[in-house]
Write a protein that binds this DNA or RNA. Structure first.
Lengths: 237, 237
DNA sequence: ACAAAAGTGTTATTTGTACACCCATGC
DNA sequence: GCATGGGTGTACAAATAACACTTTTGT
């Protein structure tokens, strides 16, 4: 049953850039292999058309689950891509979302519209359908920017994690090595980690284990927002 | 002549949040008074439907000009708003753009679809149509964030400006007072201002005038990107 | 001389950065 | 006792924050 409008309308889709982190391994991106044209057989981001009565982020989560089986993800809007020629089927505007997940907690399986599903290292991506390579690139930049000033990432570690694990996470996502001493000083001085125990049964000095104190973080963040502004210009140079 | 699709499609619009700055006056936002329903007579952001073959940002600029007469604006994508009930006409998804302009350089006039056009101080906005109040709020937050780490804003001043004028700009956009001594030290140490003369004919010590050295800025920014990453976590608390 | 706004000196304190070093555990 | 990571001391440089002060102009 067809739908008719007085003026033409672009189609509206959502796409998801899901980054997976696991214990020091390179940062991964979740891709699906398309079952249908256009780009049948090509790797692409999970995504699809928005239903008429659903929120955009709901559509993104639905498509993610339908195509990859992944659930329980906190996604965030990235950018809306709308070049008139980005899809051979005609005008398709896509709202992209992104997320960073703890890879071992998020099993995937190929489902509707996807032949396969797979994780790919961010610097060894296959050729992607549509403008998805550009979307992934935008997502990486956004993720790195965000990691620097928001406590994203603590969910990617075991409940109790060591500072070395945390540092490793930062190094993997940022793609550069960090200085151990300074990383520790800095992160501990922020006062958002709570010590909760010690490693056991390791063949070296056991690490202290921490958990993230979310309440404390939120309290500090709101207390200090005025100072942040007061600092004024910065330019990041 | 009607357009028919196999599946229903949301309508797609763009909206523009244009901030205007002028010489120490409070930050303003450009609004239009709607001529037609829904919300006829209400104030709203300039915006409208996206044509089938135009880029999203082109649509935003076109609607901005059609409704307010404003041209030559550098807009940037803000966020896409898609709550299913945000428009009484049915499902309408809107891609919002924002910009900051030098108010005196951008004359406006009411045109199609708008009874009037006007500038409103950001903290004395009228009641807005649709979810536009939320869009404006999101834009203010983004603008303040951006101002802190990007040299946006130099176009809002005369070609040659004094440090006091620059400070005033920052104070108006951020909405807080800044310390004169520290502002100056900081901004001069960045090395992106070039001294180009002196004020004349003022009844006080004449100020040095500067211009923004864009090349220098870009050089410094690219040189220092690795350091930025290396600093790692920061959390802005 | 005075008002007005521009511009500077200085200092205590906090951060940043870079190395080298010590510590606790299992084997 | 040794390999393996975990964890610390320290010191110089730089940035931040805060306050009061001097300078230059027109009238």
């Amino acid at each position: 049953m067809p739908y008719t409008y007085e003026y033409p309308r672009p189609a509206l889709t959502v796409d998801c850039v899901i980054f997976g982190y696991e214990n020091g391994r390179p940062l991964q991106v979740l891709l699906i292999q398309r079952a249908h044209d256009p780009y049948a057989g090509h790797w692409a981001l999970p995504g699809g058309f928005v239903d008429m009565d659903e929120e955009l982020h709901t559509a993104a989560l639905r498509e993610l689950e339908e195509e990859s089986g992944m659930v329980n993800v906190f996604i965030e809007q990235l950018y809306t891509f709308g070049r008139p020629d980005r899809d051979p089927r005609g005008r398709v505007v896509s709202v992209a979302y992104y997320a960073l997940v703890h890879l071992p907690d998020h099993p995937v399986r190929a489902a509707s519209d996807a032949r396969q599903v797979g994780w790919f290292s961010v610097d060894e991506l296959p050729h992607l359908a549509f403008d998805h390579a550009g979307i992934v690139e935008a997502a990486i930049n956004r993720l790195r920017g965000k990691l620097r000033y928001q406590p994203i990432g603590f969910e990617l570690l075991p409940n109790h994690f060591s500072l070395s694990q945390l540092q490793e996470l930062y190094e993997v996502v940022l793609g550069i090595p960090l200085n151990k001493r300074n990383f520790r000083t800095r992160i501990l001085k922020m006062g958002v980690l709570e010590e909760v125990g010690k490693q056991e049964g390791v063949a070296h000095r056991p690490a202290r284990l921490y958990c993230f104190d979310k309440e404390k973080y939120e309290q500090l963040a709101s207390e200090n927002y005025p100072n942040l502004l007061r600092r004024g210009v910065n330019f990041e140079i």
